[in-house]
Design a protein around this nucleic acid. Structure first.
Lengths: 198, 198
DNA sequence: ACTACAGTGTTGACGTTGTCAACATAGATA
DNA sequence: TATCTATGTTGACAACGTCAACACTGTAGT
């Protein structure tokens, strides 16, 4: 149990990322403000600047953690169905459900033009690790014969496009959210899988 | 040639939308500011508020025009290849190229959580018109036999997810942009079409 | 032609935000 | 114990969105 009144917070950096993530989940990105964040944690408004160059850097850290969390979700989903086409479907559904369950968070991860890869290599790495996870899955499916033997990197992009596209449309409210999102996700992924097969 | 010094601008509303769109294309959404926009046009900072309730309303109008423009692009692409599977492919490639050619604009159209459908029915309508265009194309393909006879509305969502997902990943720089974007788009859409066929 | 009005544009002001500069504190190290 | 470095604080500033009050102008009705 950390001291409440210590002059030094102890681990302000992670506290900031966690608080920001929690706030985003509840209220959306727009309500995240350096001053408000600091106040919630109990430090002064400029304390965050000892750990992040600016607000974008903080958000980039939050987004990177989002990619990491998503990757773990997918990993868990695969372990639940480790073999065959069910593995592919399981991962895809888990991806879409993560996005819709953490809508504002997911929006932050993608679509913030200020968060460019060159400035934030950690964010780049986290996103790329997610992609790598997908490539590995494609390879596994190729060995199982459920996906044709094209370049797995290229096919991974196609698959990523599909699940991200569906997630994005749902999260942004572009399509009326159906009663059973998992069902729509399954349909979409099965269609994708058929296309990837031959 | 409009008077430069007229007290009343004449058509400030469209001037605002056009200027904002141009600015977004060149510099991105973040640099669009009510004050800066007004200054560029030559009116005072609060003049826009006679035409838009707030900044989000202005951006929503810009986004709506973006959807409308995109729809026209797709229409043109279809007319170039009115028959068969080439029609589907042509539309998909045109979609992705529009997105990558107008990256910041495309990002505004999607992914602004402040721009919700309920507050801005015009934006909703413009986006839905785009969707309708897709449904019509799916129907045509079904009649031609290149797409299976499922509910066209559902298949349209699948197709939309795919082209939007690819566009989104490219626009956000999540994948290293390949030298020939149209080629990648073609590959993706062919994969999609195979999946939609059976 | 005069008047009233509604539409449009302007100026002033306020609170909020991100962030810099200067200063303060405390734990680690010599 | 003295010093250094990491960390946190206070004060200040410019930019921004936006409200309220006021000004201008073309139009409609008499």
């Amino acid at each position: 149990m950390p001291d409440k009144k210590a002059y030094h917070h102890g681990d302000l950096r992670t506290a900031l990322v966690q608080e920001a993530a929690a706030l985003i989940a509840v209220e959306g990105v727009d309500v995240v403000t350096m001053r408000g964040l600091s106040q919630r944690i109990g430090v002064s408004r400029t304390a965050p600047y000892r750990h992040f160059a600016d607000k974008d850097a903080l958000l980039a850290a939050v987004a990177a953690e989002g990619f990491s969390t998503l990757r773990q979700h997918l990993h868990t989903a695969i372990e639940a169905h480790p073999h065959g086409a069910a593995s592919f479907e399981s991962m895809g559904v888990a991806y879409v459900l993560f996005a819709t369950d953490h809508a504002a968070y997911y929006r932050l991860m993608y679509g913030r033009e200020a968060l460019d890869r060159e400035r934030f290599p950690d964010l780049h790495a986290a996103a790329h690790a997610l992609y790598d996870e997908l490539v590995a899955l494609i390879r596994q499916q190729q060995e199982a014969g459920t996906i044709r033997g094209d370049r797995p990197e290229a096919l991974a992009y196609v698959a990523w496009s599909t699940v991200h596209g569906l997630s994005s449309l749902l999260v942004d409210g572009q399509m009326e959210a159906p009663p059973d999102i998992a069902e729509l996700a399954r349909l979409t992924i099965q269609t994708l899988l058929v296309g990837l097969q031959t």
